[in-house]
Structure formats: structure tokens, C-alpha cells
Lab assay of single mutants.
Amino acid sequence: PREAYIVTIEKGKPGQTVTWYQLRADHPKPDSLISEHPTAQEAMDAKKRYED
């Protein structure tokens, strides 16, 4: 089974940042970016789909 994890990042100019959620996995390479999402819920949904 595949495993993934969610990383929170800040995008934008200082003082005007927006939080994004990255879905990452250690396949095919360590810390590979799988997808980016504007909400934590979307990231969790993507994580479930990826791991299923």
C-alpha cells in the first residue's frame, strides 16, 4: 500500500501569504510532490484516494 503525508506551506509575498497543502510521498523518490491543494479537506481527500 502507498503512503502519503501532508505538508503545509505558505505561498505569496510576506504579509500576504496564503496557506496551501501539499500531498507528498516517498515514491518514486523521497519527498516527491504528488499534488497541491488550497484546503486541508481537499488534501485529506487526495491522500485517501492516493493511499487506496
Rank of each mutant, 00 (worst) to 15 (best):
P1W: 11
P1Y: 15
P1S: 12
P1T: 13
P1F: 14
P1V: 14
P1H: 14
P1Q: 15
P1M: 14
R2E: 07
R2K: 12
R2M: 12
R2L: 12
R2Y: 14
R2D: 07
R2T: 10
E3R: 14
E3P: 09
E3K: 15
E3I: 13
E3H: 15
E3V: 15
E3S: 15
E3F: 15
E3D: 11
E3L: 15
E3M: 14
A4M: 08
A4L: 14
A4Y: 13
A4T: 08
A4K: 01
A4H: 04
A4C: 11
A4G: 10
Y5P: 00
Y5C: 03
Y5K: 07
Y5N: 04
Y5E: 02
Y5G: 01
Y5V: 06
Y5I: 06
Y5T: 05
Y5Q: 04
I6E: 00
I6G: 00
I6Y: 02
I6A: 00
I6V: 09
I6M: 04
I6C: 02
I6N: 00
I6K: 00
I6T: 02
V7L: 07
V7W: 05
V7D: 02
V7N: 04
V7A: 06
V7H: 05
V7Q: 07
V7K: 08
T8V: 12
T8W: 06
T8L: 11
T8D: 04
T8F: 06
T8H: 08
T8G: 05
T8A: 12
I9M: 07
I9K: 05
I9N: 03
I9E: 03
I9P: 01
I9V: 14
I9D: 02
I9Q: 04
I9H: 05
I9A: 05
I9R: 04
I9T: 07
E10S: 10
E10P: 05
E10L: 13
E10H: 12
E10W: 07
E10D: 11
E10G: 05
K11S: 06
K11C: 05
K11D: 04
K11G: 05
K11R: 13
K11Y: 12
K11A: 06
K11H: 07
K11I: 10
K11L: 08
K11E: 04
K11P: 02
K11T: 07
G12A: 05
G12H: 06
G12R: 05
G12F: 04
G12D: 04
G12Y: 05
G12S: 05
K13H: 14
K13G: 13
K13C: 07
K13F: 12
K13N: 14
K13D: 13
K13L: 15
K13A: 14
P14F: 11
P14M: 08
P14W: 08
P14I: 11
P14L: 08
P14K: 12
P14G: 09
P14S: 07
P14T: 07
G15Y: 06
G15S: 06
G15M: 05
G15Q: 06
G15N: 08
G15A: 05
Q16I: 07
Q16S: 13
Q16M: 13
Q16E: 14
Q16Y: 14
Q16V: 11
T17L: 14
T17I: 09
T17H: 09
T17Q: 12
T17Y: 11
T17A: 10
T17S: 11
T17N: 07
V18W: 07
V18K: 14
V18L: 09
V18N: 09
V18D: 09
V18Q: 12
V18S: 11
V18I: 12
V18P: 02
V18A: 08
V18E: 14
V18H: 10
V18G: 05
T19Q: 06
T19E: 06
T19W: 06
T19P: 07
T19F: 08
T19L: 13
T19G: 03
T19I: 15
T19R: 08
W20F: 08
W20Y: 08
W20P: 00
W20R: 05
W20D: 01
W20L: 08
W20G: 03
W20Q: 04
Y21S: 01
Y21G: 00
Y21E: 01
Y21C: 01
Y21R: 00
Y21F: 11
Y21K: 00
Y21Q: 00
Y21I: 01
Y21T: 00
Y21N: 00
Q22R: 00
Q22I: 04
Q22G: 02
Q22T: 04
Q22Y: 03
Q22A: 04
Q22F: 02
Q22N: 01
Q22M: 03
Q22L: 04
Q22S: 04
Q22V: 04
Q22K: 00
L23F: 02
L23D: 01
L23Y: 01
L23M: 03
L23H: 00
L23Q: 01
L23R: 00
L23T: 02
L23N: 01
L23W: 00
L23I: 07
L23G: 01
R24I: 10
R24T: 04
R24M: 12
R24F: 12
R24S: 02
R24Q: 03
R24P: 01
R24C: 06
R24E: 01
R24H: 07
A25N: 06
A25V: 15
A25W: 04
A25P: 00
A25T: 15
A25D: 04
A25R: 09
A25Y: 04
D26L: 11
D26M: 11
D26E: 07
D26Y: 08
D26Q: 08
D26K: 13
D26T: 10
D26C: 09
D26S: 13
D26I: 08
D26G: 12
D26W: 08
H27P: 03
H27S: 12
H27G: 07
H27N: 11
H27Y: 15
P28F: 07
P28A: 07
P28D: 09
P28T: 06
P28I: 10
P28N: 07
P28Y: 08
P28K: 08
K29G: 10
K29W: 15
K29F: 13
K29H: 14
K29N: 13
K29V: 14
K29Q: 12
K29L: 13
K29M: 14
K29P: 12
P30Y: 09
P30E: 10
P30M: 10
P30K: 13
P30I: 11
P30D: 07
P30Q: 09
P30A: 11
P30L: 11
P30R: 11
P30S: 07
D31M: 11
D31S: 13
D31Y: 15
D31E: 10
D31R: 10
D31C: 09
D31L: 08
D31H: 13
S32M: 12
S32T: 15
S32K: 11
S32Q: 09
S32W: 11
S32H: 14
S32A: 08
S32R: 14
S32E: 07
L33T: 05
L33W: 04
L33P: 03
L33F: 12
L33S: 02
L33N: 02
L33Y: 06
L33E: 03
L33I: 13
L33H: 03
I34S: 00
I34W: 03
I34G: 00
I34Q: 04
I34L: 09
I34H: 02
I34Y: 02
I34V: 09
I34F: 02
I34P: 00
S35Y: 01
S35W: 01
S35R: 00
S35M: 01
S35L: 00
S35N: 02
S35A: 02
E36R: 01
E36K: 02
E36N: 04
E36Y: 03
E36M: 05
E36A: 03
E36Q: 05
E36W: 06
E36P: 00
E36G: 02
H37L: 02
H37S: 01
H37M: 02
H37C: 01
H37D: 01
H37I: 00
P38I: 11
P38R: 13
P38E: 12
P38N: 08
P38G: 09
P38K: 13
P38V: 10
P38D: 05
P38W: 07
P38H: 09
P38Y: 08
P38A: 15
P38T: 12
T39F: 04
T39C: 03
T39D: 06
T39A: 03
T39Y: 04
T39V: 03
T39L: 04
T39N: 11
T39W: 03
T39I: 03
T39E: 03
A40Q: 15
A40K: 15
A40V: 15
A40I: 15
A40D: 06
A40E: 15
A40M: 15
Q41S: 11
Q41V: 10
Q41D: 10
Q41M: 11
Q41H: 11
Q41Y: 08
Q41R: 10
Q41A: 15
Q41C: 07
Q41T: 10
Q41P: 06
Q41K: 13
E42F: 03
E42H: 06
E42R: 05
E42Q: 10
E42C: 03
E42K: 07
E42W: 02
E42T: 05
E42S: 09
E42I: 05
E42D: 12
A43Y: 00
A43T: 02
A43W: 00
A43D: 00
A43E: 00
A43K: 00
A43S: 03
A43I: 02
A43V: 06
A43L: 01
A43N: 00
M44V: 11
M44C: 06
M44L: 14
M44W: 15
M44R: 09
M44G: 06
M44F: 13
M44H: 12
M44N: 10
D45L: 14
D45A: 11
D45G: 06
D45F: 09
D45Y: 10
D45M: 12
D45W: 12
D45I: 14
D45K: 09
D45E: 15
D45V: 09
D45S: 09
D45C: 07
A46S: 05
A46M: 04
A46I: 01
A46T: 02
A46V: 02
A46G: 03
A46L: 02
A46K: 02
A46F: 04
A46R: 03
A46Q: 04
K47M: 11
K47V: 03
K47G: 02
K47T: 01
K47A: 04
K47D: 00
K47W: 06
K47C: 03
K47R: 07
K47H: 05
K47N: 02
K47Y: 05
K47L: 13
K48V: 11
K48R: 13
K48L: 12
K48S: 09
K48P: 01
K48A: 12
K48I: 13
K48Y: 09
K48T: 10
K48Q: 11
R49G: 06
R49P: 02
R49E: 11
R49A: 15
R49I: 13
R49M: 12
R49H: 12
R49Y: 12
R49L: 13
R49C: 06
Y50L: 07
Y50K: 02
Y50F: 11
Y50P: 00
Y50M: 05
Y50A: 03
Y50V: 04
E51D: 12
E51M: 13
E51Q: 10
E51P: 04
E51R: 05
E51I: 09
E51S: 08
E51T: 08
E51G: 05
E51W: 05
D52R: 11
D52W: 13
D52S: 15
D52K: 12
D52G: 14
D52E: 13
D52H: 13
